[in-house]
């Protein structure tokens, strides 16, 4: 898998996040501060602007730049979290000669470890980690069963969607939704939703 596949991923994710910006903001209005859609859209449009103006030699260079762009453009909690994800994801691919299912798995793990280090969330806190964690598990299981990148990412995206749906009844324990206490229950987590969109995009584009 070459750098073009990752360019396609980022462009596709930017398109999907743009289409879903109002939806993400609506979810964030219920338990946050009504800015998640606008912030993700702004960050990924900035990545598209970088892609339009620069060509990248390697996937790691591309993804690190995408991460730094998110850190620089998004703000809020999602900027550092998604920025760190792509920075670590890219770093894990540095020097990898053949980007296969195993390499993508390592990169996914590295990215999610970065999210955890930055956000200190645990499973069930009603955060994006509730989508990332089952996605990693499903990805690993698929690869162990002999799947290539595409099908493994499809399994990961499906697991992320289940994790996202499972955030609905949870009481938030991290981020702005945690201020609501019990009142945060009954709402889907915006971060788990954007994570699922990004993984679904990966499943469509990385193969």
């Amino acid at each position: 898998m070459g750098v073009d596949a990752f360019v396609n991923w980022l462009r596709d994710a930017a398109g999907v996040l743009h289409e879903n910006a109002a939806y993400l903001t609506e979810l964030d209005s219920a338990i946050g501060d009504a800015d998640h859609g606008a912030n993700m859209d702004r960050g990924f449009q900035a990545i598209v602007a970088v892609l339009d103006g620069t060509s990248f030699e390697s996937a790691d260079e591309l993804l690190k730049k995408a991460g730094m762009t998110l850190v620089s453009k998004v703000g809020g909690a999602s900027g550092p979290l998604y920025g760190t994800f792509f920075l670590r994801f890219g770093t894990a691919l540095a020097g990898v000669s053949s980007i296969n299912a195993e390499a993508v798995g390592k990169a996914l793990h590295a990215g999610v470890e970065g999210v955890l280090a930055r956000g200190k969330a645990e499973l069930g806190d009603k955060t994006m980690y509730d989508a990332w964690a089952p996605a990693l598990e499903a990805y690993d299981a698929a690869v162990a069963g002999g799947s290539e990148v595409g099908p493994a990412l499809t399994a990961a995206a499906e697991a992320a969607a289940k994790g996202r749906d499972a955030t609905v009844p949870l009481v938030a324990r991290k981020g702005r939704a945690s201020y609501l206490g019990e009142r945060s229950a009954g709402h889907q987590d915006p971060g788990a939703t954007s994570t699922t969109l990004i993984l679904e995009s990966a499943a469509r584009t990385l193969a």
Binding site: S29, D33, A34, D35, A38, R176, Y179, L180, G181, R183
Partner: peptide
């Protein structure tokens, strides 16, 4: 109303108030 969102962050009826709010238009306790 956050300008980019275009509509109020939450709805509050004429006879209601939110107690324990922060400063981001987030609902209170």
């Amino acid at each position: 109303t956050v300008p980019a969102a275009g509509k109020p962050t939450f709805d509050l009826a004429d006879n209601e108030m939110e107690v324990g709010i922060g400063i981001h238009g987030e609902p209170g306790r």
